[in-house]
Amino acid sequence: MHTEATGACGDAYEGGLRKVARVVLLDPEDRILLLHGHEPDDPSDNWWFTPGGGLEGEETREQAALRELVEETGITDVELGPVLWRRICSFPFAGRRWDQDEWYYLARTAQAATAAATALTELERRSVAGARWWTCEELTRAHETVYPTRLAELLRRLLDEGPPASPVTLDPEIV
């Protein structure tokens, strides 16, 4: 099992608990935008994941979430909402171990078209193959690997009940 280590600082990450901001971006039809990633040297080892990445310098997680969204999708018309979920994960990717503290922000956009990602790191250029909007039903039926692993269930609850009163801590994913 692999997961999403790309994002700003992806090329410079050298261990420790990496602070990551991810975006659960919904369009007016409640579809979620996911990126299609793969192991840099093995495109057949692939998965879908939410946009986002590591914090740079002194930026806040909110700032990182918005920056990463622009860098990875070109989407700038975004209303950033609350933190929905938090999780700790650890996984091998691109020949090293990644230990991440991820916060997932809700965001809404009317901008359904993604632009060519122009600010990708070298690692992202080698491991991100595109983006796609998914309905909750499509996610539920998907046979592809999606991170976080319970995303279809989490999205259904979000759409049915709205954002949680405080961030929900997801089970750690350690590979």
Rank of each mutant, 00 (worst) to 15 (best):
V175N: 10
P172F: 08
G7K: 12
R141A: 11
D171R: 11
E138K: 11
S44A: 13
E71T: 05
V70Y: 05
R22K: 12
A142V: 08
L154V: 01
W134I: 14
L26V: 05
P164E: 11
L55G: 00
E29G: 10
G74R: 01
L155S: 03
V78T: 09
A94L: 00
T109Y: 08
R86F: 07
P82E: 14
G7M: 08
R18L: 02
D11H: 02
T121K: 04
K19H: 02
R97Q: 04
E79S: 14
R18G: 05
A8M: 12
T140D: 05
R126A: 04
L159V: 13
P163A: 13
R96P: 03
L159S: 05
F93K: 12
R61F: 02
V70S: 09
L155A: 07
A116W: 14
A110L: 08
A12F: 06
V78L: 10
R67L: 06
A94Q: 07
E58N: 15
I88G: 03
G16I: 04
D41I: 07
R61G: 06
S166T: 02
E161T: 15
W133M: 00
F91T: 06
L139M: 12
E29P: 00
P172V: 00
L84Y: 07
T169C: 12
G162H: 13
R87Q: 04
D99M: 07
V83S: 08
A131L: 13
E59G: 02
P163N: 15
D27M: 03
P51D: 01
E122N: 06
E58C: 15
F93D: 11
P43M: 10
L154N: 10
A131R: 14
D42I: 00
T114N: 07
E14D: 05
T73M: 14
G74W: 10
P43N: 12
G57F: 10
P82M: 14
G53L: 08
E39P: 04
W103T: 01
R108T: 14
F93M: 06
Q63I: 06
W134P: 07
R141G: 08
L139V: 07
T3C: 04
V168D: 09
Q100E: 11
E144A: 15
T76D: 00
L159Y: 09
L159R: 11
I32V: 12
W133E: 06
T73A: 06
R126P: 03
T145V: 14
I88F: 15
A64F: 09
Q63A: 03
I75D: 09
R132E: 11
G54C: 07
F93S: 11
Q100D: 06
A107S: 10
L154I: 04
L69I: 01
H143F: 06
T169L: 09
G10A: 05
Q63G: 10
P167G: 07
G10L: 00
T118A: 14
L120M: 14
A142W: 02
L34E: 03
L17K: 11
D171H: 12
E144C: 12
G54Q: 01
W48R: 01
I32S: 15
